[in-house]
């Protein structure tokens, strides 16, 4: 891989346990992963394999039970809640499957949200948001409210929000899950283009053909990375017997 560059995201022997004793669930068991600038990594695996937990921990929405998580060289374990929130405003962008946008805000305002929350003046934030929307070719949506947009348009606005400003890590949790396949492809093409421009991205997906857009696929099962590969024919990854 791109070993020369510094990893934007680095997970080192990360464990995450939900619940206690009888209800204890091992969501992640010693996962290590590094994602470099310009790289799009797909995370696959069956339900309950820990895919979503991996993403929430990577962005500091959740904390590992043990192990370290570094974003752009900063150890999240050393940050308090406010510090992790600041990190999400400045370095990490999230894209979820649905309910991505705040319905009370327009597309531009949604895209400008991280900047405004970070204290950037409203006018400047709006400018940056319009630029991000423009790069993604959806400037005309700027003043629409979420319930005036289609699902695909909403998802594109969510990506704009994830990359607005100088953020270099996008964490996407099944970003195409709620979309029809054609719209889904378009959203992925957009994400790919951002990565080619230098952003690092981790995308959880359960569709093999989406994984084809990735530079690398990480396969999780029961909280353990069972395979990590350069893009093979994706179907091979789904068959453990082919390991």
């Amino acid at each position: 891989m791109n070993a020369a560059g510094t990893a934007v995201l680095r997970l080192d022997d990360v464990h995450r346990v939900h619940g206690q004793a009888a209800t204890e669930v091992q969501a992640l068991r010693g996962v290590s992963l590094a994602v470099y600038p310009g790289e799009l990594v797909a995370v696959m695996g069956p339900s309950g394999s820990g895919k979503s937990t991996l993403l929430t921990i990577a962005g500091g929405l959740d904390s590992p039970t043990s192990g370290t998580v570094c974003v752009e060289g900063r150890d999240l374990g050393g940050l308090d809640r406010a510090g992790r929130a600041r990190l999400r405003r400045t370095s990490v962008g999230y894209v979820f499957q649905d309910f991505n946008l705040v319905p009370a805000l327009t597309a531009a305002e949604n895209a400008a949200l991280p900047l405004e929350l970070d204290g950037v003046r409203a006018r400047a934030a709006r400018g940056a948001a319009l630029a991000a929307l423009g790069e993604l070719g959806i400037e005309e949506l700027a003043d629409r409210f979420p319930d005036q947009m289609s699902g695909g348009q909403q998802q594109r606005v969510a990506i704009a929000r994830a990359v607005v400003g100088e953020r270099r890590l996008v964490l996407a949790d099944e970003p195409t899950g709620a979309l029809d396949s054609e719209t889904g492809e378009e959203v992925l093409r957009m994400l790919r283009a951002r990565c080619d421009a230098g952003t690092a991205a981790v995308m959880v997906t359960h569709e093999a053909r989406h994984a084809a857009w990735a530079d690398r696929v990480v396969f999780l099962r029961d909280g353990v990375v069972v395979d990590e590969s350069s893009p093979l024919p994706p179907t091979a990854l789904l068959e453990p017997s082919l390991r």
Binding site: L61, R89, P103, R161
Partner: peptide, 13 residues
Amino acid sequence: PDLATLAAVGASP
């Protein structure tokens, strides 16, 4: 849900 979205994009507590 809106507050969760805000949290995800880095709203402070």
